[in-house]
């Protein structure tokens, strides 16, 4: 990788009480790359994204965005950095006191001060790109299905055309066809907007489609990272077990037989 990485993490640690979730994460993401983070359920993938966004304060380590250290930023500096991010939350996290289109237009109106009418038009365009007709814009989030909420969350994350976008399980809960539409949309974000993305997914099909690079999180560390093309010859039994979805292997799930 040449030049300054868009995102660079080194020695990042976070524990909740005695539980060490992130235990020294080192990784960097080049501008325009699309990193997919894979790993078992509960290994700390969502915590990793939230820590980069400053929603969770790390115990140790450094986070650099375009070379700028963000762990020591004050509130205004944080806001300035966050304006460059977009995030799709795993649970969508739509504002239930607003309508769907107001959710999508939120960053445009509050963050960028765009006028309501213009923001609405933009919001409806974004909704259309995730396959939602404009009638849906007038509904409240409580009236949507799980997959529709996910797509509205996605539309909201990309509405402000951010430089860096995080997708936490963008295709979970969607049918295979809609999953493919969303995969294409994420690829388009990287291509057309020149965005740098970090996505979390359990769906290897989707990972192969959207990733330029893959990182596997296990035991609080990145145990393997490389270009997507190398994933089938990673040489890591952990990665092999994960991508083939086998219960037997070095990763032991805590279940009672």
């Amino acid at each position: 990788m040449d030049g300054v990485p868009k995102i660079q993490l080194s020695g990042l640690k976070k524990a909740f009480g005695p539980k060490r979730v992130l235990d020294g994460i080192d990784i960097s993401v080049a501008p325009g790359a699309s990193l997919v983070v894979i790993g078992g359920s509960g290994t700390g993938k969502s915590v990793l994204l939230k820590t980069i966004l400053g929603l969770i304060r790390p115990d140790a380590g450094s986070i650099r965005i375009d070379g700028e250290e963000t762990t020591s930023l004050d509130a205004t500096g944080r806001e300035r950095i966050n304006a460059r991010f977009g995030m799709l939350f795993q649970g969508a996290a739509l504002f239930d006191s607003l309508t769907v289109w107001e959710n999508v237009a939120f960053g445009l109106m509050q963050g960028q001060g765009m006028h309501r009418a213009e923001a609405k038009a933009r919001a409806l365009e974004n909704l259309a790109s995730v396959g939602l007709p404009k009638e849906v814009g007038e509904l409240s989030p409580a009236e949507l299905s799980g997959g529709m909420k996910k797509r509205v969350g996605l539309a909201r994350a990309i509405a402000t055309r951010p430089e860096i976008i995080f997708f936490d399980e963008p295709t979970t809960g969607l049918d295979p066809i809609m999953s493919d539409v969303i995969n294409n949309l994420i690829v388009a974000c990287v291509k057309d907007l020149g965005a740098t993305t970090v996505s979390i997914t359990h769906d290897m099909h989707s990972a192969r489609k959207i990733a330029t690079h893959v990182a596997m999180l296990h035991g609080g560390r990145i145990i393997w990272t490389g270009p997507i093309g190398d994933i089938d010859r990673s040489g890591s039994p952990y990665v092999d077990q994960f991508i083939h979805g086998r219960a037997e292997g070095p990763i032991q799930m805590q279940v009672r037989a």
Partner: peptide, 25 residues
Amino acid sequence: AEIGTMRVTEQIDALVTLSTNPYKY
């Protein structure tokens, strides 16, 4: 109840990522 629900459903986190200060909003 309202703000607590927003907290546990990550809506407050979402506000922050949309460059809105939750104290002010």
